[in-house]
């Protein structure tokens, strides 16, 4: 299966992992009841994608077109923040393996804290982010 979609719930974000098109996205709030149960499979999947890409010699594909990681988050609790950083540390491994990556961090215009959270994550994982102001429609 080349595309995984985890539907959003009241407490967990929508997560899309589209391997063929080199796309990962996380959207909406994150405050899972069991944070480990929610995030561990996502981390494992991303690690295995990195291995697949490297082992299959598909690096040239991602030189043309980056593997895009998109974050359009609403509220996330501190336990989720730890796992978001874990995801971003895997993004760093993608990059170190020669996979071209792009991280797009969205925030609402009035939410400077959310932009700052992105800047902190970028600093902690040592990967540059692109920042975009989210329109209301983006959150639909």
């Amino acid at each position: 299966m080349s595309k995984i979609v985890i539907e959003k719930t009241d407490r967990t974000p929508e997560v899309i992992i589209d391997i063929d098109n080199g796309f990962f996205s996380m959207q909406y709030d994150s405050r899972p009841e069991d944070v480990r149960k929610f995030y561990y499979p996502i981390l494992e999947k991303l690690k295995s994608i990195k291995e697949e890409v490297v082992q299959a010699g598909n690096l040239s594909y991602f030189k043309e077109k980056p593997f895009v990681f998109t974050f359009k988050l609403g509220y996330f609790n501190s336990s989720s923040a730890k796992f978001i950083l874990d995801i971003l540390n895997i993004v760093k491994l993608f990059k170190e393996s020669g996979i071209n990556v792009e991280v797009n961090w969205y925030y609402f215009e009035d939410e400077d804290d959310m932009r700052e959270a992105g800047e902190d994550f970028s600093e902690f994982c040592e990967v540059g982010f692109n920042y975009f102001i989210m329109e209301d429609d983006d959150d639909e």
């Binding site: 069991d34 944070v35 480990r36 501190s78 336990s79 923040a81 730890k82 796992f83 950083l85 902190d120 600093e123 902690f124």
Partner: peptide
């Protein structure tokens, strides 16, 4: 930064970040 980069999620689901946050 020091806490989140070293954090281990406890059985209770905490990362030791709540009060710092």
């Amino acid at each position: 930064k020091a806490t989140i980069t070293k954090a281990q999620i406890s059985q209770k689901g905490g990362a030791g970040l709540g009060l710092i946050e």
